[in-house]
């Protein structure tokens, strides 16, 4: 396969031939994206990057609070939206996470879990609580399933594909969805994700593999469409 060599190099952390020196972007499927934005590029530092901010928040520093909101709010809302499938509920969860940040910042002790991991655990628990409460109340709404008929007649654009991925995520069982959301979208390491979900790394891998298989089945048409687009384009 002719296209695999630069991709392999990219996966191995090497500069592929298609990348311009100093530009920090690679050609990927016809688009130029920054290196590391495609589910990669995690910081190597082990020091908690939020440590100083949390200490300042604990001392009542509003600017530090504003900075931590800027840093983490999109991720918290994203987690809520992917887990709950509802933008308003996702915002409620994110708001609740930050209320807990304000409450616990003064007593936060660095050196255990990263602060961001703690935030993810709080957010995930809030989401799972809501899902269970909703299931108990019989209020679970079956999310819109991806409609594969359109793709048979005309190629899909990225926005349509995005909507179908979003819908397919919502039909995954909640534990599989949680594992996938944490590892793929929230960029948690396998160890962090396992810790957040309270499972072993082996169990996490099993959840991820099942989630991925289920998504492949649900998105087979979109995947084929994307593949053919790559071959022709």
């Amino acid at each position: 396969m002719t296209t695999s060599a630069p991709c392999v190099q990219q996966a191995l952390g090497k500069r592929p031939a298609t990348m311009h020196k100093g530009e920090g972007r690679v050609a990927l499927m016809g688009r130029r994206v920054p290196v590391g934005t495609f589910f990669g590029g995690r910081p190597l530092s082990t020091r908690d990057p939020d440590e100083d901010l949390v200490r300042k928040i604990g001392a009542g520093d509003k600017r530090a609070a504003s900075e931590i909101v800027r840093r983490h709010l999109p991720k918290m809302v994203g987690l809520g939206r992917r887990m709950l499938g509802d933008a308003a509920e996702a915002e409620d969860v994110a708001q609740e996470v930050f209320l807990r940040v304000w409450k616990h910042a003064a007593s936060w002790k660095p050196g255990q879990a990263k602060f961001e991991t703690w935030m993810h655990r709080v957010a995930m628990n809030l989401c799972l609580d809501r899902l269970r409460r909703s299931a108990r109340n019989g209020g679970e709404v079956s999310p819109e399933t991806p409609d594969g008929t359109a793709s048979a007649t005309r190629p899909l654009d990225d926005l349509q594909r995005k909507e179908r991925v979003r819908a397919a995520l919502q039909v995954l069982p909640e534990r599989q969805r949680a594992a996938l959301v944490l590892c793929y979208y929230q960029e948690r390491t396998n160890i962090e994700a396992a810790e957040i979900l309270g499972v072993s790394v082996d169990a996490l891998e099993s959840l991820l593999a099942r989630a991925r298989r289920a998504l492949k089945a649900a998105l087979s048409a979109e995947r084929a469409d994307l593949m053919s687009g790559l071959e022709t384009g």
């Binding site: 915002e91 998105l219 994307l226």
Partner: peptide, 24 residues
């Protein structure tokens, strides 16, 4: 890798500024 690319299309959306302000 192609499948990863498909999943990666489901990107984060930037929260509304009014909501960010409310959280702050």
């Amino acid at each position: 890798r192609v499948f990863d690319h498909l999943l990666a299309l489901e990107t984060d959306t930037v929260p509304h500024s009014a909501f960010s302000a409310r959280v702050v």
